[in-house]
Design a protein around this nucleic acid. Structure first.
Lengths: 358, 358
DNA sequence: GTGAAAGCGCTAACAG
DNA sequence: CTGTTAGCGCTTTCAC
């Protein structure tokens, strides 16, 4: 069909050397005289030749590819995460094979198998739940892997996540500072560890501020519509909360919809604090105060962790926790009179907490 | 390091057959007696064995992997496109290798080379511009490929895109029907064919409605901030347009920001018609009327086109054009009095226009 | 430094 | 139907 792609021996023939020499020049493993190297390189360029990574890996046993599995590449959060991972991997000349688990544990296992079949050097995974059904497949395969974002508590492996507790705590302190004493936390599903951690962090900050009890928690499910309905219902009951703290993007969208249907204005009627930070939050009316997760940094950090393992690092598993930042806008700050002062930095951007062996 | 992954001969030994038989059972290429097939399958299951696609492809010359190159996986539009492609590919047991070109023609070529090195069965590409610098690499490689979304006019290959002209025309007709006679079109960069096509479609609908001249066109660049600035400037000059038609997501966000800074309300002061359709548009105030692109359908269609070629279809190149739909919301419709009637279907969802040979 | 030859895991001929 | 054998494109001994 097509004029077959050139092979390494084509290059060798053209340069008048053996294929072993071509391999050594291109792979840079063993020294080759400058003269020959020159000839090989120009022959390769003439033929527009590049090494077949599959064949290379088959023979050498070393892969120059890694895999990424996320619950849903369609979700902008994961898309950005994958984008950052890809950029980082490219710099070290690794190719990335990406798959989605569709938030389904069975599919997660199936996709993991398909990915492992490629015999990648390593794997980056965002599990679809806290059980992480695919974990044993990874352990069996014996390749390094890093668990990202949704990290089971007992995971005995490298992990990269955000400081969910601290982020939620900062959000609650912000609301308390504005005088809110009747705050409702809105979570999608408390089955997700991230959601539980955010609720826990919020509750702790609440107590530490000397407040009685805990903020109320509303669990709405994943869809924007469901969240909108549940929040609207809650806003109609009294006592009406003075602030809504939405713990993910979908719920934040739901909260905006609920405010609109309930005919309430933020921040005058109810303050709104959201999670995740997207362009539309800056142009919403009012612009939405939100907790920004360092998505890109998470992707990069996960890749760096993986490469370290690929290079043979044998240190005990470690858990990287990246700090979120609070972006104060009008939905909490009270119109134009909002406090435009910068939010104080909370420690360093990157905290390393050693993980536990399993 | 790890207890080496089982190979096909491990399975053969365990089942007491030759590796060729294992291959035939697992690959289903040639008939095998039920008894042996049974033994092989259970041996494979015991060992948790799965075929190495790289080795398989090396020997057979047939790849069970395809590649996708998009400008930026971080962009929700492309993320959704890739998600749809992945889902479609998975159903036919193909793996997808995904890369981003970073909207840079040089990187596009480099990434294309890296992808082609895997000797994929085929390729799905969203070029980063209308030049499509990587085209020759694909032609050289001699594998089937489908160009998606940003399709050069003279492309002599399979292509999948939306009906940009028709979509923009429908948008303009909607605005005209609401009485708008002073409309400004806002494009990111007219260097992109999609943007030019949308302007052209809008202008044609304008003329066909018996209006004089053409709608004014504003070119703002890619960033939300730049768009916001340019649009705000324009809104301050007179005569102020009565409607703004934003031709992509970023510009739509920019338009919202501009309205806000200019202190204008949609639709009473200025109507706003956006492009692309995301959840936030439904909860914006006012909810944004927008042209929805059938992103998922595009991804699926592109995959189907590719598989057809992989199966050896030799028909002349074809250009699939999918229809967009207008989602009418409050930003154009005039508050609660908005016309909530369904938008009439414009022909079939899928139009096939034969491409030209190059 | 360089080349010849073996072999990674698999499938396609071919023999039986 | 099933087994034997060769070889895909590459890297790696091991000679020289």
């Amino acid at each position: 069909m097509n004029p077959k792609r050139p092979t390494m021996s084509d290059v060798a023939r053209r340069a008048g050397v053996s294929s072993a020499t071509v391999s050594n020049v291109l792979g840079g493993r063993r020294p080759v005289s400058a003269a020959l190297a020159e000839r090989v390189l120009s022959a390769a360029a003439d033929l527009d030749y590049y090494v077949d990574p599959a064949a290379s890996q088959l023979r050498s046993g070393r892969a120059r590819a890694a895999c990424v599995l996320v619950p849903d590449i369609t979700n902008p959060f994961f898309a950005e995460l994958v984008g950052a991972m890809e950029a980082a991997a490219r710099q070290e000349r690794y190719d990335l094979i990406v798959a989605s688990s569709g938030d389904d544990p069975d599919l997660e296992r199936a996709r993991l198998k398909a990915l492992l079949a490629w015999r990648p050097a390593g794997m980056l995974v965002v599990p679809c739940d806290d059980v992480f059904a695919g974990r044993d497949l990874l352990l069996e395969a014996g390749i390094p892997f890093v668990v990202v974002d949704r990290v089971p508590d007992d995971i005995g492996t490298d992990a990269v996540l955000v400081g969910n507790e601290e982020a939620a705590a900062e959000g609650v302190r912000h609301l308390l500072a504005l005088g809110h004493r009747n705050v409702v936390l809105v979570a999608s599903k408390l089955a997700l560890g991230n959601m539980r951690a955010r609720c826990a962090g919020a509750a702790q900050a609440w107590r530490e501020a000397g407040q009685a009890g805990e903020p109320e928690v509303l669990e709405t499910g994943f869809s924007v519509e469901a969240a909108a309905g549940a929040i609207a219902d809650r806003l109609r009951r009294s006592p009406r909360p003075t602030a809504v703290f939405a713990l993910n993007t979908a719920v934040t969208l739901g909260a905006l919809a609920a405010l609109s249907t309930a005919g309430l204005k933020a921040p005058s009627d109810v303050a709104l604090l959201g999670f995740d930070d997207y362009a539309w939050m800056r142009v919403a009316s009012p612009p939405v105060t939100a907790i920004r997760q360092p998505v890109g940094a998470m992707g990069e950090a996960a890749w760096r962790r993986l490469v370290a393992r690929l290079r043979g690092e044998a240190a005990p598993p470690c858990r990287l926790r990246l700090a979120c930042t609070l972006e104060v806008r009008a939905s909490t700050a009270g119109g134009a009179a909002a406090s435009p002062r910068p939010v104080p930095e909370r420690g360093s951007q990157l905290t390393v907490i050693p993980g536990r062996k399993t």
